[in-house]
Design a protein around this nucleic acid. Sequence first.
RNA 1: GCGGCCAUAGCUCAACUGGUUAGAGCGCCGGACUGUGACUCCGGAGGUUACCGGUUCGAUCCCGGUUGGCCGCCCCA
Length: 429
Amino acid sequence: MSQKIAGVKGMNDLLPGEIEIWQHVEALARELFGRFGYGEVRTPMVEDTALFVRSVGEETDIVGKEMYTFEDKGGRSLSLRPEGTAPAARAYIEHSVINQEPITRWFYMGPMFRYERMKTGRYRQFYQIGAEAYGAKEAAQDAELMDMVVQFLEALELKDVSLNLNSLGDEACRPAYHTKLVEYLRSKRESLCADCQRRLETNPLRVLDCKNEGCQAIAAAGPNVLEFLCEPCRAHFDDLKRKLTALGIKFVENPRMVRGLDYYTRTVFEVIASHPALGTASTVCGGGRYDKMMKGLGGPDVPAVGFAIGLDRLVLLLKESGRKFTSSPDLFVAVADEGSQTDALTLASRLRREGLRVDFDTRGGSLKSQMKRADKSGARFTLVLGEAERTSGQAKLKPMAGGEPIPVALDDVAKTLRAQPAATPAGPA
RNA sequence: GCGGCCAUAGCUCAACUGGUUAGAGCGCCGGACUGUGACUCCGGAGGUUACCGGUUCGAUCCCGGUUGGCCGCCCCA
């Protein structure tokens, strides 16, 4: 017996029955983002490793220990993309888009890869839908982007989500805050948890969102990043809050929210969904402004702001909602006798050409078994084709939810079926 | 990367402290009803008990390893 081959750990198959949810979310994103003027881009899933090292940051966990990095046969160091912002920026630079238009709005969707310990809502191949706006440093751009996220989540009918907002300042004010924070945390070192004592040296900002109660109290009493913002950063943040309010977008100002990627300046935001099905994977969207990244990658000095939505987590929430996303056939064509199979196949073909969703059991078999299949398919109507129908040219549309069969000419099936009122949701007990 | 829990049919789960041929529900296939699904009844297929090794007269059960899944930490979407 040959060995069974299993899928790679942390990388999942999506089959019919579940894929419809993904398609629903993706279709909605394309439609809605298009309304906002965002165009879709597709970049390769593999990039030069240096792209991520220079943008995401060498010291981040993502680059430091989670990338799928390998050498190709030409000796190049390549990596499976762990996120989508850097590849999009690379494409933007490479195609000199800045010289063609002053403002560019892009979105993308597709798989990302991080070698991590798996959990609910966290996989090694996971999917993001992201958007990036290049060329506008104004707070209005941040606000428009967040409006798009909010409208997207609303359209998905997701409840219990909250938008967290913060500003990390820029190169003019962040260093002073950083120094002050480290100074303060050092003075409280003995009271911090073991993890935070380590973070103090590696990534002091991370102490701010430690779950430990003692650390939270210490962080809350420490220097507030928002109080260290320089005047331009302060003005930008205030402007953003005013515009969000004008848009009717509720947000929570959270001066202790930090993000794991190095490229952010000024605005950072997260959308948190509180649902038990997500466990600790409650962040469904994260984003922010990265005004310095383009230049850092050797491109033009172009400001940018973007976000990424975790599609896997959205799908988990939609599964929990119990909503149905599958669509059923309009008609099932059943064959009464073997001699009618070719005509049935031809009929099904014609009706599909006319736009109907038609199911048909190509194996034939007893009429009873075909009826069972028709029932299971969820088809609205079943049409039985046999010798009698072929000679008379007349058949019946049997409503699977119950009721009287509707006489129909074989030449008129699509028209007659479309004229039928939608099935009544109410059924007998 | 660290700590803990778990793995039996396609799915959800049984099988007293180690003891004959590993069961049920759902699903699937067929029949009762030979041109009509659902409800009911009857029957059938489907398992190397995740994998490898050990202890034992005997292992689904005990032990070790591997792989995979879940939870917390870390981190993030």
